[in-house]
Simulated scan of single mutants.
Amino acid sequence: MSLQVGKAIYNILSNDARVIDSVGHKIYPLIADTGTTFPFIVYRRTSIEPSDSKDRFIYSEDTYVEVVIASDKYNESIEIADLVKNALQGKKGNYSGINIHDIRMTNADEDYIEDTFIQNLTFNIKTNGRTSN
């Protein structure tokens, strides 16, 4: 079920040694914990687009997820963004009960807010719309 795709994102990122070497286990849904130190990652689902068949059966869904890398150093933010992209791009398989057909980065932008360098990566995640156990 694509509403739960955050579980898969967390699973993939928290099991990637290079990502963990860079941010530890500071990977959060929606908002970082109070007092979190740089660098860290936040992810959030931004939209879901179901694909129906003629008989209205949802056979696949495109879920869009934004992954935000925050750091107090610009170079560190883009290096971690590359690691996140490499960890997610092209993934297929079952992660935390979510059947992932493919993950593709569709957009990337950056910002500087309150002494923080921000890298925003948007991913399209194709699922079958169902959860498997």
Rank of each mutant, 00 (worst) to 15 (best):
M1V: 02
L3H: 09
V5C: 08
K7S: 11
A8L: 09
A8Y: 07
I9T: 10
I9G: 13
Y10Q: 08
I12F: 10
L13W: 02
S14F: 01
S14A: 11
D16W: 06
V19E: 06
I20V: 15
D21E: 15
H25V: 03
Y28A: 10
P29Y: 14
P29T: 12
P29F: 12
I31N: 15
A32M: 11
D33C: 02
F38Y: 14
I41E: 12
I41P: 11
Y43I: 12
R44I: 14
I48D: 14
P50Q: 00
D52R: 12
S53P: 00
K54G: 02
R56K: 06
F57A: 00
Y59D: 00
Y59S: 03
T63P: 05
V65C: 06
E66W: 02
V68N: 09
S71P: 11
S71H: 02
S77F: 07
S77H: 03
I78C: 04
D82T: 14
D82S: 13
V84W: 02
L88W: 12
Q89R: 06
G90A: 03
K92Y: 05
G93N: 04
G93C: 04
Y95D: 04
S96H: 01
I98R: 07
I100F: 00
I100V: 12
N107K: 07
A108N: 11
D109W: 10
D111T: 08
D111E: 12
Y112V: 14
E114A: 14
T116G: 09
T116V: 13
T116F: 10
L121S: 13
L121Q: 15
T122L: 11
F123I: 10
I125F: 00
I125M: 02
T127C: 03
R130G: 12
